[in-house]
């Protein structure tokens, strides 16, 4: 019994040590006029690392703002307390990319009602108590991918869908959007599996699909690592030339790189909105009003247009 208690105390100590290590990045040396708090829900994902990098790069262009970054490490309650820290520190504006809508709505509203403008980035909160929402539309992107695929395959063919986490909204939207986009065409989805956004899983699932089906025309994966994992499986089987691979996200070092290297036929951009958030923040801080809802434009990158910065998707 005493051993157990001792273990528990140690566990708490270790956990506390781990927790205090993060979120201390205050930079007091600058002479910025405004301080912006940026609360990121999870820096474990490259896409979100990119979002922070976009915010940082955009902010670096302006001497009158400085940004304090906090990472909630995929923990809703941690993100809530980080928001509370921003409120009590009295930052001039908060950018939040929330992990979940419901549990973070009250703290966003609290900041908003205290007069701190809040920009909600990528994922939504409920209600109206925030200054502005910036995000892209996964359903639209999935639909565009579906339509592009139908056109590319000439309206018929066999397709594999490697899904992200189907319990997450991006996964659901990229799925339903895609199905909407291919409606009416003679495409057959011969295999679908949940690869949980992860490349090694996508490779495993693709190996299974390759073992089962002699002809596969195209793989549609809900993110670029998934499409890349599928490509690696096909390459190992010597079948990568006969299959096209399409992914989503188009990060410069991932999807766009894969397209440039001829690995993916196309990658659909899911923009981070980092730059747009800083633009909106400056407008708000300068007393201008911004639209309550800003939907980001998305681009498609293919072999033909990769060197020209991609092509804007039709509205």
């Amino acid at each position: 019994m005493r051993d157990l208690a001792k273990q528990l105390v140690m566990l708490v100590l270790v956990a506390a040590l781990c927790l205090t290590g993060c979120g201390k990045k205050e930079d007091t040396s600058s002479t910025a006029k405004w301080t912006i708090g940026m609360s990121q829900c999870n820096l474990g994902e490259p896409w979100r690392v990119q979002m922070n990098a976009d915010v940082r790069n955009a902010a670096d262009q302006h001497d009158d703002i400085k940004v304090i970054f906090k990472d909630a490490q995929n923990d809703t309650l941690k993100q809530r307390s980080q928001m509370e820290e921003f409120i009590s520190a009295g930052v001039d504006l908060i950018i939040v990319s929330p992990k979940e809508a419901v549990p973070l709505t009250p703290v966003v509203a609290q900041a908003y009602q205290k007069g701190i403008p809040v920009i909600v980035l990528d994922r939504r909160v409920l209600g109206e108590k925030y200054t502005c929402f910036i995000g892209a539309d996964n359903k639209k992107i999935g639909k565009a991918a579906g339509q592009w695929i139908v056109e590319k395959l000439g309206g018929k063919g066999t397709v594999i869908e490697l899904k992200g986490l189907m319990t997450s909204t991006p996964g659901q939207d990229r799925h339903t959007g895609f199905r909407e986009g291919i409606k009416g065409a003679n495409l057959e989805i011969i295999f679908e599996a949940d690869m949980k956004w992860l490349e090694p899983n996508a490779r495993k699932e693709m190996e299974s699909a390759l073992a089962r089906f002699e002809t596969i025309d195209l793989v549609y994966a809900h993110n670029d690592p998934g499409a890349h994992g599928a490509y690696l499986a096909a390459k190992a089987a010597g079948r990568e030339k006969e299959i096209m691979f399409v992914g989503i996200d188009a990060l410069s070092q991932e999807g766009r790189a894969y397209v440039a290297q001829g690995v993916l036929a196309a990658s659909f951009e899911y923009p981070t909105g980092g730059k747009k958030a800083i633009e909106a923040a400056l407008e708000i801080l300068n007393g201008q009003t911004v639209e309550k809802e800003i939907v980001l434009d998305s681009r498609v990158f293919t072999e033909e247009n990769i060197n020209d910065g991609g092509e804007l998707l039709g509205q």
Binding site: L43, P46, V49, S252, Q253, E254, R256, A257, A260, Q261
Partner: peptide, 22 residues
């Protein structure tokens, strides 16, 4: 995460000017 800067270390190598070399 620290040695990788949180990004995947892939064959797309970022150059000083922000572009990627494969």
């Amino acid at each position: 995460k620290w040695i990788s800067g949180g990004q995947k270390i892939s064959t797309a190598v970022q150059q000083a000017d922000g572009t990627y070399e494969y």
